[in-house]
Amino acid sequence: MARKKSRQFGNSNQRKLVTYLEPKSPISEQFRTLRTNIQYSFIDEEMQTIMITSSGPTEGKSTTAANIAVVFAQQGKRTLFIDADLRKPSSHYTFSFTNNVGLTSVLTRQIELGKAIQIVEPLGLHVLTSGPLPPNPAELLSSKSMNELINQTKEDFDIIIVDTPPITAVTDAQIIANICQGVVLVVSSGRTQVEDAVKTKELLLNTGTKILGAVLNNRKMKDNTYYYYGKK
């Protein structure tokens, strides 16, 4: 697969990437625990495609998704992060990349996948940003091109992490859930309402996708850890 360009990590725009900037911190250790639990969730099949979503906005799903991708790349896995939030994308800010081309460009066949992917060095983490925002996100994500893209990436990468919009806001996440092997749900302490989390779980179960677990975000624990992963 052709590489478009690489970008070295810096400290200016990667403050949310604690797994890279502070790899020995308690939070980074929890992300590594999350990685291990995800891997053990798939015993009888090869696990490659994981969707990260939340009930509503500003619950930390994109930050969680980016850090999960980082810890898989740190493990030596050939990892691809796909920003499938075609309404409020953020990966180009997180990884300090341009967003002139990306997922939407590939789906509309304006550019080949390999030329749209950008690489974060020194991790070797591959990133497919959202690309220009389309007028029809749900239609693009449910297209034959999206299925073809996922199938292609499964041939080229060990792990594909897909960031989506909140599941209760639009149908996009439910569409993506149908083509991913598992879902991790991010909930925010003090923000996510119980009824919203329950509704989100029901919507995900209706897609037939395996719910791998939940990440409780923004809650300071007594042992100074901030994330907890629990298998459903």
Score class of each variant (00 low, 15 high):
18 V>D: 02
54 S>A: 15
170 V>N: 10
208 G>L: 11
180 C>N: 07
157 F>G: 04
45 E>S: 12
189 S>E: 08
152 Q>S: 13
211 I>T: 08
44 D>A: 08
67 N>L: 04
75 Q>V: 02
108 T>A: 07
118 Q>I: 01
231 K>S: 15
37 N>M: 07
219 R>A: 11
185 L>G: 00
148 E>I: 13
119 I>A: 06
100 N>Q: 14
144 K>V: 12
43 I>G: 03
141 L>C: 14
222 K>A: 14
88 K>F: 10
25 S>K: 12
163 D>S: 12
144 K>G: 05
2 A>Y: 09
158 D>L: 07
133 L>T: 11
173 A>P: 03
63 T>R: 08
39 Q>W: 01
22 E>R: 13
75 Q>N: 12
126 H>M: 07
90 S>E: 12
25 S>W: 07
1 M>D: 11
180 C>M: 11
73 A>G: 05
48 Q>A: 09
6 S>M: 09
218 N>R: 12
96 S>Q: 13
108 T>F: 03
32 R>H: 08
197 A>R: 06
213 G>P: 03
39 Q>R: 11
231 K>I: 13
198 V>H: 14
46 E>Y: 08
45 E>N: 09
67 N>W: 00
197 A>I: 03
228 Y>S: 15
221 M>W: 07
201 K>V: 14
191 R>E: 14
227 Y>C: 11
46 E>C: 04
160 I>A: 05
24 K>Q: 13
79 T>A: 06
132 P>N: 12
27 I>H: 02
45 E>A: 09
26 P>H: 06
134 P>R: 13
118 Q>R: 15
204 L>R: 05
10 G>D: 15
171 T>W: 02
220 K>G: 03
24 K>R: 10
95 F>E: 02
55 S>I: 01
77 K>F: 08
65 A>E: 02
225 T>Y: 04
176 I>W: 01
52 I>Q: 02
114 G>T: 09
132 P>E: 11
135 P>E: 13
161 I>G: 02
203 L>Q: 15
202 E>F: 04
130 S>N: 10
227 Y>H: 09
103 L>G: 03
194 V>P: 04
97 F>H: 04
40 Y>Q: 11
163 D>A: 09
28 S>A: 14
172 D>Y: 04
127 V>A: 09
181 Q>M: 09
172 D>N: 11
